[in-house]
Simulated scan of single mutants.
Amino acid sequence: MTDRPALSRQRIIDAASRVADDRGLAGVSMRNVGTELGVEAMSLYHHISGKDDLLDGLADWVFTGIELPDLDQPWRPAMVARATSSRSRLASHPWALGLIESRRNPGPALLHHHDTVLGCLRTNSFSVELAAHAFSAIDAYVYGFVLTELNLPMDAGEGADELVAEMSLPTDTYPHLAEMMTEQVLGKSYSYGDEFDFGLSLILDGLEEKLGDG
């Protein structure tokens, strides 16, 4: 008989992330996490107080996989790296976006994440107010972009050309939309994900301008 590693809060949270990946957030329960670990659900209560605590820990787990800047790193490449890492992390775990926005008890990884990002901006001459604006604007963009990516009406392996062809937009009714589709999408190997860097640059350009005004 193979001995299982001892239960710990971290092992339980890691198992909960696997359950969420397989079944979605609705599938995360003490029973299902216990099954994932090969133990009875009751044994989890020695480390987790209940489902709310489990979800709080799972929300905090999301932030452990997002790249953080060094405090003395130049702010713009630091924000690009963090935004790119955040997008990748959230896209890899589609359940995470709704979860992290709904929890009321931030954990140490989340708090460290926020403090470090603000610290990087502050050491790069951002005022407290501008750092708060920057954090909000960048995260709103990343979260919104990921939400759109996750909900695009395309099947696995289907390209944008197929979707546009299926829509069959009449050019006399929607001339500008049809023009954009023809010029930007059809035959161009278009991927919506390629828009991420352009949109992020617009936000960072605006922040850079504000920082210079200060």
Rank of each mutant, 00 (worst) to 15 (best):
M1K: 03
M1T: 12
D3K: 14
P5H: 07
L7A: 07
L7F: 05
S8R: 10
S8E: 00
R9Q: 10
I13V: 15
A15P: 13
A16T: 12
A16M: 06
A16D: 05
S17D: 14
R18K: 12
R18F: 07
V19P: 10
A20H: 06
R23N: 07
G24D: 08
G24I: 10
A26C: 03
G27H: 00
V33P: 08
G34T: 05
E36R: 08
L37R: 00
A41G: 10
M42F: 15
M42S: 12
Y45P: 05
H46T: 07
K51R: 15
D52C: 02
G57K: 15
A59S: 13
W61E: 12
V62D: 01
V62H: 07
V62F: 00
V62G: 01
F63C: 11
T64H: 03
T64G: 06
G65W: 01
E67V: 15
P69R: 13
D70F: 09
D70E: 14
D70S: 15
Q73N: 04
P74H: 13
A83W: 10
S85I: 03
S85H: 06
S85F: 01
S88P: 05
S88G: 04
A91T: 14
A91Y: 09
S92E: 03
W95H: 02
W95K: 12
L97T: 10
G98Q: 08
I100T: 09
E101C: 02
R104K: 13
N105A: 12
P106K: 07
G107V: 04
P108A: 12
P108K: 05
L110K: 04
L111F: 14
D115C: 00
V117A: 08
C120V: 08
L121I: 14
R122Y: 14
T123E: 12
F126Y: 11
F126V: 01
S127M: 10
V128K: 10
A131N: 01
A132I: 13
A132F: 14
I138R: 00
A140T: 00
Y141D: 11
V142M: 05
V146I: 14
V146A: 03
L147P: 02
L147R: 07
T148Y: 02
E149M: 06
L152M: 12
D155F: 02
D155I: 05
G157L: 08
G157E: 09
G159N: 13
G159Q: 12
L163Q: 13
V164C: 01
V164W: 00
M167A: 00
S168P: 05
S168W: 06
P170K: 01
T171I: 08
D172G: 07
Y174M: 13
M180H: 07
M180L: 11
E183P: 14
Q184H: 06
Q184P: 08
L186R: 14
S189W: 03
S189T: 03
Y190A: 11
S191T: 08
Y192A: 15
E195I: 10
F196K: 02
F198V: 00
G199Q: 12
S201R: 12
L202M: 01
I203K: 09
L204F: 03
K210L: 11
L211V: 08
G212F: 06
G214F: 03
